[in-house]
Structure formats: C-alpha cells, structure tokens
Amino acid sequence: MNKVNLDLSSKKTVVIVEDNDLLSKVLEYRMEKDGFQVEVFNNGEEAIEFLSSNSFDLLITDLYMPFMNGSELIKYVRNNISATVPIMAISSTHEEDVIGNIFNIGANDFIVKPFRAGELSVRIKRLIR
C-alpha cells in the first residue's frame, strides 16, 4: 500500500504529471537542479504504471489532462498506492468547487496558474520535508 520512499540517503523522487511540455520541462529542470530525481509523464494513465511499481516522495499533477485527469489520478493514488505521500495539484481553474474537491480527495497543496516559478519551488520543498 505505502510506496513512500523512506530511504533518506538516496535522492528523493518527484513525479510530474503534466501534459504541457513547457511547464513539465521547466519543473523538471528546477527539481533536478534542487537535487531531486524527476519522472515526467504526460497523463495519469502513463503515470499509474510507474507509481504502482516504484517508490516516490512527491506527486505533482495537472488537473486537466487527456485520458486520465488529475482528480482521477489523485483518487487512484490515495486509494491504491499511498495514503500519505504528498500530492500537489496544478491548474488554471479559479472555481472554488473544483479547488475544494481537490483537497477533499486527498491533495495536500494546490497552485493556480499562472504562478511564480520560484514560489512553486519553495512549496515543493516544504511539502517534501
């Protein structure tokens, strides 16, 4: 059930699920620079395969993606993979219902696009600690 990486000596793994190639690349660049091991996927379906068989320390997911959206992915991770691993959702939506629902299904943080690249980096570090 719990796939959280508990080995403190190894590099922490951050999984980015984002269909926007620019955003995922920018995040990947920063995470790698900050010393994390990064895995990038274009949608939830692709990510599940990895998440089910590998340990990870943080999941960053966009909400609106093809095949399997972010909400479905968060639900799946919470029900089948890990109940405690930190999850951060990213979206351009301002709708309160959507944002509220994201926290209800198990996300730990939510960031609205557009955002400051530096701010995201700080939030990620806070979550992962």
Binding site: L22, V26, P114, R116, A117, G118, E119
Partner: peptide, 15 residues
C-alpha cells in the same frame, strides 16, 4: 509560441 505559453503559465519575474 513557447514564450506565449510561458507567459500564460508563469507570473512574476518569469513573466
């Protein structure tokens, strides 16, 4: 196109 996409996603210094 890449810059416009960046502008849509990032604010602050990046923008």
């Amino acid at each position: 196109d890449v810059l416009i996409e960046g502008k849509r996603n990032f604010t602050g210094e990046g923008s």
